[in-house]
Write a protein that binds this DNA or RNA. Structure first.
Lengths: 338, 338
DNA sequence: TATTATTGCGCAATCGTTCCCGGGACCGTC
DNA sequence: GACGGTCCCGGGAACGATTGCGCAATAATA
């Protein structure tokens, strides 16, 4: 059906050998200018493109990188993707995106699929469900370059790039305190996610600074990162059934914030009058939401760019790299009218 | 660095030929059960995976499909992607997603890149800028299976799958009329986009039905589909500078609706008191927006599934297909409190 | 004129896999 | 004992591209 032209086609048409054609196209010095001209013009005419699959086989690399993240619909991740693409395309790499939808099973399948598809490297942000990363360690030990972003695996030694979640969480919590909240709950994702740990730390630190006692029952985890609204609903209702209801919530993610607002709307609890909320966000629609939320903004695009740059450097490095770095990008608190 | 095992490795280790190993793994009848057992066990042990690149070269197909759409951050498209993946993975295909960001140039580069990467087929929703589809026609004529979804090219004969934009637009406009609006503007994307034409038609039909005169100056096009907020702002301000200001706007897309709301917020024009808006939407955050918008919902996930199914059937068809269909999926009007 | 560089190009191997073909080993039959 | 037929298995070409090597023909030099 769809049969692109090959070197052989050109060679046959011009009465040359494939090697000559190949060399002519690559502009080697050992081909005469006339021959080059003839070949180039003909190749131009039929719009010849070298078969990248044959090239991959020969060069043993595919010039493509795999990305695993929870879901592209998340504005944070779609910005990261834009950052990734901006670098990858410039350096001649393809980007293959896979979504885990916060499922460990999907993540494993996707990533092993990517590896067997001979991607040259991997950009990974772990799913909320993932606690066992042995399959990733396996790939990594066998030499597949991997760079983690956002949600990293502490047990795997490679480049990592994260936002300053601690500082962000600290500021968000501090903001609630400064607004007068004293019973501040924390709604977050799965407890084994690196970002959850970091944000919890920031939250605790802010409480400590203002001598607000830390209360374990005020921290609610959503193992699926709010993928099911039910999960969020249960967590919020548990919080609201406490004797000492919280008067503020620091929510650790975009998706959870939205779910949260939906629940409060159902419960007819007014935000921010009866309940103050701050979150981590990246939505451009957030300004339009009612109520608007004060939130921590992450440099998503920049994270994508940096992670990709690091990965491609790993891939293209001539010698095995053992010196890995962990970059922490600053967040900024976006104070809105509550 | 990362060197997976090959048939040759197995063959050498077991003292067999590669052909025997290959056949044993594919369970051919002409290999003895013992040999098969030995080979299979060894392959299992070293976790052998056939090199998909070598396979692609041999089979001359990559078991992957390319997708071109404006941007994954758009909730409509991210739902479509989920639909696409749900089918593709089941049938053993990879999905490579590219974003045009509504740019013709990017679209052309991406798609030609995909084609040269030997994708087996293409799922395309045109960018807002695209008016010349000759490069697509080229690929299509050379036998590359293509299925259009959402924004289709009328000049290319292949499967197409769209939402019932006319009906949707009709209902959205009718809703405005029923709410009492009489000077209804229409804010839409690029004028050569199929969806724009279809939605404009629906808009006109609704006006006609209720004997509201159609006024050309009430229709504003945004060539970049609202990718730049400036574009939206200019359009809205032009509308608001008319002697007869509109009292309602039917907005043709998600992104434009959001941009629209931002502008009205700036202009301190109250929605829906001073200006009623209905839109096309797919955001799950839309329920939380203030004001909430009555909007037309498209079956995005289903469109992705259907389009992919059709594409894979094209790809796997033994004979050239000349009988193409155009599927139109129903939309539904989601009436919210305005 | 004879020998050596230089130029310009083709042959063939390679990447990992599949598959056509061919060829031994073994059995049964005449 | 010779021959035909299975049964198993290996050799080698092919997919499309790159590249080291070799080899003509020409040019330069002794």
């Amino acid at each position: 059906m769809f049969e692109p032209f090959t070197l052989k086609d050109i060679a046959k048409a011009l009465g040359l050998s494939t090697s000559t054609v190949s060399r002519a196209l690559r502009d080697t010095h050992e081909i005469s200018p006339q021959t080059k001209k003839i070949v180039l013009e003909y190749a131009q005419k039929i719009n010849y493109r070298p078969n990248p699959i044959a090239l991959s086989l020969k060069e043993r690399r595919s010039k493509s990188i795999g990305v695993s993240l929870s879901e592209v619909a998340n504005p944070y991740f779609s910005r990261v993707i834009n950052g990734i693409e901006s670098i990858a395309y410039d350096r001649g790499y393809h980007v293959i995106i896979t979504q885990t939808h916060e499922s460990y099973e999907r993540e494993k399948i996707n990533i092993e699929h990517l590896a067997s598809r001979s991607v040259d490297g991997l950009l990974v942000s772990l799913s909320a469900e993932t606690s066992d990363t042995s399959y990733l360690q396996n790939l990594h030990q066998r030499g597949l370059p991997i760079v983690f972003f956002d949600r990293v695996a502490k047990e795997i030694e490679t480049h990592k790039i994260i936002a300053n979640n601690e500082k962000g969480a600290f500021e968000a919590t501090e903001h609630l305190i400064q607004q007068g909240c004293r019973r501040i709950a924390h709604l977050t994702s799965s407890d084994h996610l690196s970002i959850s740990v970091e944000r919890l730390n920031g939250y605790k630190q802010a409480l400590a600074k203002y001598q607000v006692p830390f209360d374990e029952t005020y921290v609610k985890y959503c193992a699926h990162g709010g993928m099911s609204q039910q999960e969020t609903e249960i967590a919020i209702k548990e919080l609201m059934n406490l004797k000492q209801k919280p008067d503020g919530i620091f929510v650790a993610s975009d998706r959870l914030s939205i779910g949260c607002l939906v629940v409060f709307k159902e419960l007819k609890i007014k935000v921010p009058e009866e309940m103050r909320i701050t979150g981590f966000c990246n939505s451009d629609v957030l300004d339009l939401m009612s109520p608007t939320l004060t939130s921590v903004c992450q440099p998503a695009f920049e994270m994508g760019r940096l992670a990709t740059d690091m990965l491609l450097n790993l891939i293209e490095s001539k010698y095995p790299v053992h010196d890995f770095e962990k970059k922490i990008l600053d967040t900024s608190l976006f104070v809105r009218n509550n």
